[in-house]
């Protein structure tokens, strides 16, 4: 087998050269579908990243009953900070809040004239460890005796998570469909080069070639076509992702885009390996189908 390896490789390149236009079609097909595949992967990755970063910055606000003393408030703060899932608790006393409020509006109104007594409660800003704990923590806090009300933007987080889920699901189904379509095209493309050489296959078998001997060049041809297609897709993805990130970070510097080189390298590698896998399967399936008709 190994003594024939050189021969198989030479045969594969020969076939590619002869395939001409069809080979290019197969390469482009693989490149296009893998580029779409990679784009989805990058999109899902970044959306997930944005959601987790944004939601980790979100906290909930708990308002106490109005007539709570500072000591009582300090006790609550301790209680809150010990709740499971709570990362950090910040206290703002009703006086601080009132002064700040007055300061904000102070220039325009004399609020003290209108409202004699401080109408505001003490507030706690509570940060949770992970976004999915938010709802649970909010419910627990609102059930505490001295807490009047809890507010948080759980709705927004839920919506974002649904969006990411939908993109993930849609992307996955699209990628599966796309892979099947690509495989079909690659099989049929390589099949054309197989068909053009069906007489050759028949003769090879008549002079004593085994099936695997006949198959190897086509499989190697698949590897080469797949590597070319995957390589092109990888290059397109890398260049366009990097320029997109560059432009977006200039326009929206706060947007948390994925810049993790390890993760990105993994995605690029998946693209190339995916191309190779498609090529191998394409070559194998098409030559096996042709050989089934032979004796």
């Amino acid at each position: 087998m190994f003594s024939s390896l050189e021969f198989f490789i030479v045969e594969a390149f020969r076939s590619i050269r002869r395939g001409g236009l069809m080979t290019s079609v197969a390469v482009v097909t693989i490149a296009v579908s893998l580029t779409i595949f990679g784009t989805f992967l990058l999109l899902v990755l970044n959306l997930g990243n944005i959601v987790s970063v944004v939601s980790s910055r979100m906290d909930l606000t708990a308002y106490t009953q109005k007539d709570l003393s500072l000591d009582e408030a300090a006790a609550i703060q301790l209680k809150l900070s010990r709740l499971p899932g709570v990362e950090k608790v910040e206290f703002t006393s009703k006086t601080e809040a009132w002064n700040k409020f007055k300061g904000d509006f102070g220039g325009k109104f004399a609020l003290d004239e209108v409202i004699r007594e401080n109408p505001l409660p003490h507030t706690f800003a509570v940060q949770v460890r992970t976004p999915d704990q938010l709802t649970q923590v909010a419910r627990t806090i609102s059930n505490l005796a001295d807490i009047d009300e809890v507010r948080y933007s759980g709705q927004l987080i839920k919506q974002m998570q649904t969006l990411v889920g939908a993109v993930r699901l849609g992307g996955l189904s699209l990628v599966i469909l796309l892979s099947l379509a690509t495989l079909l095209i690659v099989v049929n493309t390589i099949r054309l080069t197989v068909l053009a050489r069906e007489t050759d296959l028949y003769i090879m078998k008549l002079v004593g070639a085994t099936n695997s001997f006949v198959k190897w060049p086509f499989i190697i041809e698949g590897v080469i076509i797949g590597l070319l297609g995957g390589g092109v897709a990888c290059l397109v993805l890398k260049v366009s992702y990097e320029s997109t990130v560059l432009r977006l970070t200039q326009a929206l510097p706060f947007l948390p885009l994925v810049g993790d080189t390890f993760l990105l390298t993994a995605i690029y590698a998946v693209t190339v390996i995916g191309g190779m896998a498609l090529g191998i399967m394409g070559g194998y399936i098409s030559v096996s189908r042709a050989l089934k008709n032979e004796v």
Partner: peptide, 11 residues
Amino acid sequence: AFALRVTGAPR
């Protein structure tokens, strides 16, 4: 040569 190649004979 092809009839020999299929047997995996050395070059």
